[in-house]
Amino acid sequence: MSHPITTDDSREIVRVDAIVKDFRPGLGLRAKRVLHEVSFAVREGEIYGFVGPNGAGKTTTLKILMGLIRPTSGNATILDCDVTETGFREHIGFLPENPYFYSFLTAEEILRFYARLSGVGGRDRDRRVQALIELVGLGDARRERLSTYSKGMLQRVGIAQALIHDPKVVFLDEPMSGLDPIGRKDIRDIILRLKSEGKTVFMNTHILNDVEMICDRVAIIVKGRIRHEGPIREFMNEEAMRSDIVLAHLAPEVAEQLGAKFSARVQTVGEQVEVQVMDGQVRDLLKSALEAGAEVLSLSPNRISLERIFLEAVEQGEQADGSSAAERGAPAC
């Protein structure tokens, strides 16, 4: 996919340019191409969603950005520094997928450790450690060893260590994984707060709901190729602006009338009537329906659009993969 054409001219914090990654499963075996010339950019102050099915290459991309693995070709920069450098990491935070820490330390100790590595010194360090423990809600377990922590608690420690040095850019690999609903909300709130503080957030996920709720821009990656890239509102096309309403006690002919009046899609299923309508018309349609004696069973904003795009992209990816067999075998270099 080509380099995104940006409409607003805010600074590009992360730039990924035609990155290719081949993995060699073993000596003599053929290399396997996991990323095919992936390019995208993350602008200052935005929350960037990197979305894709399992095995798409999200974590691999993030590992390249963190300098943990090297791209076979292409290059990537963060804050205008090559990702293989070290100095700029003062300004970035990273939450790996299923993070794991020295389990013999307590939350406080491990955070103090990361603070020292990040150059957070003296009294500032203790203050940051306590603040982050509170932020991620680990206050009660702060002096317990991480070996006793649950998966979700470790995830919280991971988020705390990513933010310990108040970084400008935060990279999160599936930040919601392993968290309960309250935890997810907490993390969403944290991410939104980071944004409000002017931080840039890059986030890997396959939970589309989260993406829709908080992301400013999205890239969809399938089988190592970026299939869509753009601001979230580009995905929120007409269809995306609709809501689903389920009504009862509504005569079919009244339903037809309503459908015609508000140019809504109407479908009768047994006793119930399902109506899909543009978001702007919801109020008026509901008013009319209620006046006609209907009962509202449910009202939900239509969230299928991103999912549909996502599924389409995956399908597209499968087909592309099937048709271009030549691409599968990367040169063994």
Partner: peptide, 14 residues
């Protein structure tokens, strides 16, 4: 192996 190194190398540690 335990990936404890990931978070450490993401800090300004060479």
């Amino acid at each position: 192996e335990r990936r404890t190194i990931y978070t450490i190398l993401a800090k300004p540690v060479t």
